[in-house]
Nucleic acid binder design. Structure first.
Lengths: 256, 256
DNA sequence: GAGTGGTCTAGACCACCCT
DNA sequence: GGGTGGTCTAGACCACTCC
């Protein structure tokens, strides 16, 4: 948007033109955050296009996280608030952090990304929970534990962050492996965050190796793209390296 | 999909049922990678639903990166090949890496995420390029340089990776700041990768500080979610930390 | 009950590809 | 020319919210 506007002519299809016009109105403040935009009927009349074309444009804007439609009420401009977190900061405990246990099951790890950690192939204990910040769902966590050692600390995992739970049991994390990727929302994450299918998600797969034999923790943290991003720093790549993750980029919120 | 199938009844709408059925056929091999699936007309007949319902389902599958539709030809199952890269590994130079310069412009940095690096507010030199691996576009790079110092090395930047160009000029990187996030594809990235609007993108914002005064490099690397993911490791979080980024997760390809 | 968004349908035109 | 996907239309039903 900031690049190559190319607003010479309606570049292509009708619904794109409509979408970009609405986007423009959001950018320039014609449509205010948290306020409803005109109904599909009104927009259809204004633009002189059919309803489904309007709806198509709105659907795309929803997929881009710009608006939220509530059936029976209206369509609202989404207020953008994103949290920036340090990657190495595994136990941040922001103020206002709460969590809600969703399920505890026995499952084999099937996710192809997580399999690159070469986890045990047996069924493991799987704890799923939602992490809220200021009563807004920000993270969806799936933690996998070796089934045999987990019984005594499973309660801990359902109320605390993984790293916090480990620390409380005096288990030392010797190594943290992370894989970060993006993915379209599917299944349970859609419900947890109330987002449409295909909505971009930031995923952080983790493997915590510990000094205690047989205890390795695997899992994924997932967040909608507009809620969370993460930062790292690598000081002095040549010569002697120092503490990883010490960042000059502070943890903060910013408008996107 | 691997979680909570809940296939008791058609959970919800028709297009969802159709989508999941097609997804199932892709999973179980009924529809093979790189092979065309039946036309919308045939699918519509088979499922006994209207064409636009089929098209809706296919559009969602496209947004999820499962299929590719080519107008006038057909719809194909996408072969999943993803590259895993280490985060700290800024100059990998894989075999088969080529790049194509797209533009060199003077621009102010406007992206709100990049502004968290607090870059200079003046117009900077902006070099945009596409990075190919095995003739497939994998990365879209936008690099911002201080306009005054860049003239002599701008050619370098258009043919090489940022870090390589710096090394060739004996400029030492003293600090690397990264911000990783996900975002829906918009504008130029859609064209570069041939992906639809809203397609999940993995973004890696970077800031390279150097030992040479006044030279800091800012930029973004963007890749479709199904092409690239990245890994880091943090050994020994307590006590003395050692080399950052030394990873037990190898660089490799895997099927998703 | 009026208004909203979500879904579904039947039918149409176009641009494109392949034969 | 026949097949494909992409777009657009008009019209309909539903579930929901708000008054």
């Amino acid at each position: 948007m900031s690049v190559a506007p190319s607003r010479l002519r309606p570049t292509s299809s009708l619904h794109v033109t409509v979408r970009e016009e609405i986007l423009k109105r959001i950018s320039n403040g014609t449509y205010q955050p948290d306020a409803p935009i005109p109904s599909t009927a009104m927009l259809g009349e204004e633009f002189g296009v059919s309803l489904i074309t309007i709806k198509r444009a709105l659907r795309d804007l929803q997929a881009a996280g710009m608006i939220v439609s509530v059936a029976g009420k209206g369509t609202y401009v989404k207020k953008q608030t994103r949290i920036l977190r340090k990657l190495d900061m595994t136990a941040p405990s922001f103020e206002g952090t709460t969590m809600q246990l969703l399920s505890v099951t026995r499952e084999k790890i099937a996710d192809p990304v997580m399999l690159t950690f070469s986890p045990p192939r047996e069924a493991m204990l799987c704890v799923r929970k939602t992490i809220f910040i200021d009563d807004m769902p920000f993270l969806y966590d799936s933690t996998y534990l070796s089934a045999d050692v987990a019984d005594e600390i499973v309660d801990e995992f359902s109320e605390r962050l993984v790293t916090e739970a480990l620390r409380r049991h005096n288990i030392l994390v010797t190594n943290t492996d992370l894989i970060i990727d993006a993915a379209p929302a599917t299944g349970q994450v859609e419900d947890v965050f109330g987002i449409p299918t295909g909505y971009p998600i930031l995923r952080r797969f983790y493997k915590f190796s510990t000094d205690t034999a047989d205890i390795s923790i695997y899992g994924v943290l997932q967040a909608p793209f507009d809620r969370l991003s993460c930062s790292v720093s690598f000081p002095a790549r040549n010569g002697r390296a120092s503490r990883p993750g010490a960042s000059s980029v502070g943890s903060s919120k910013h408008r996107a």
